[in-house]
């Protein structure tokens, strides 16, 4: 047990820093350069959303939808593998990092809820991701350019599928419309974080490697509005934004997700497959 005390002390220190200033990053360890930080933001988004959507595997409402969701999850895990691999040891980053060191946005870690809530989360994220990847193809960074070129086709399909399902559920039965509205309501407060630019991201934007999300916020809002109009749904009222995921301040849900995802490689460090 004595071995545990340094980790415990470190944990306390982290909590202290986080309490001192909300914007203080919760991360342990040294500050990362802005490129690595950017790769982790995109990589953690893909990893966490991939794991979330993957939770549907075997639980989809019908077999065909189960397969569709698993395909989305696998695309995202593939993207995470590339991005985390570029920023370091991908497996170590995915399976041996603690919750405070994750840089994903809060939207992607939100619980699946019912199928409509999952679709709402996917719609809000995937339209943002698609617009980002379209622009990231002009990044000054060769890896990011090539990554974006590959991933943008996958994500274009995700966008299509999420839009089609939103329209069908919204313009479906009374119950499906209510569930879709509830799903949007749950996830709506996490939109502003997608367009937040902090110091680290600003540096990456200035260096020409990253996309400034504010450049497409208007287009994003219009695209969401267009899908909702087709779905006969009202956009939820804007709520108090919840921010902080990029700085490691996560909701309670991410810890549970990581506990499931990381258990095996942590408990059996020599496990192979």
């Amino acid at each position: 047990m004595t071995q545990r005390s340094p980790a415990k002390a470190e944990g306390k220190e982290r909590v202290g820093a986080a309490v001192a200033a909300f914007w203080a990053p919760a991360f342990a360890g040294e500050r990362l350069d802005f490129r690595t930080d950017y790769l982790l933001r995109l990589g953690d988004d893909a990893l966490v959303l991939g794991q979330r959507v993957g939770e549907w595997c075997g639980h989809g409402p019908v077999l065909e939808v189960d397969i569709s969701l698993a395909n989305l999850a696998l695309d995202l895990i593939g993207q995470a593998t590339l991005l985390l691999g570029e920023s370091g040891d991908g497996d170590k980053l995915a399976f041996h990092r603690d919750v405070l060191d994750f840089r994903n946005c809060l939207l992607v870690e939100q619980p699946n809820g019912d199928f409509a809530q999952t679709i709402a989360r996917h719609l809000l994220y995937t339209i943002w991701q698609h617009m980002l990847l379209q622009r990231l193809q002009q990044s000054s960074d060769q890896f990011l350019r090539e990554f974006a070129h590959k991933a943008v086709k996958e994500v274009a399909y995700h966008r299509e599928l999420a839009s089609e399902w939103t329209i069908r559920l919204g313009d479906g039965t009374e119950e499906s419309a209510q569930r879709m509205a509830d799903g949007l309501e749950w996830n709506w407060r996490f939109i502003p974080e997608l367009f937040e630019v902090d110091e680290g991201l600003q540096q990456a934007i200035d260096a020409g490697i990253a996309v400034d999300p504010r450049s497409f916020e208007e287009e994003y809002r219009a695209a969401i509005a267009a899908v909702l109009a087709q779905a006969q749904l009202e956009a939820p009222a804007d709520q108090r934004p919840i921010l902080g995921g990029r700085q490691g301040h996560h909701s309670e849900h991410l810890g549970h997700l990581l506990a499931v995802m990381q258990f095996l490689p942590r408990a059996y460090s020599d496990a192979k497959w």
């Binding site: 065909e64 939808v65 397969i67 569709s68 395909n71 399909y157 299509e160 599928l161 089609e164 069908r168």
Partner: peptide
């Protein structure tokens, strides 16, 4: 449309 999506995915 969804039949096409399901066919693609399956």
């Amino acid at each position: 449309e969804l039949a096409l999506a399901h066919a693609r995915d399956t």
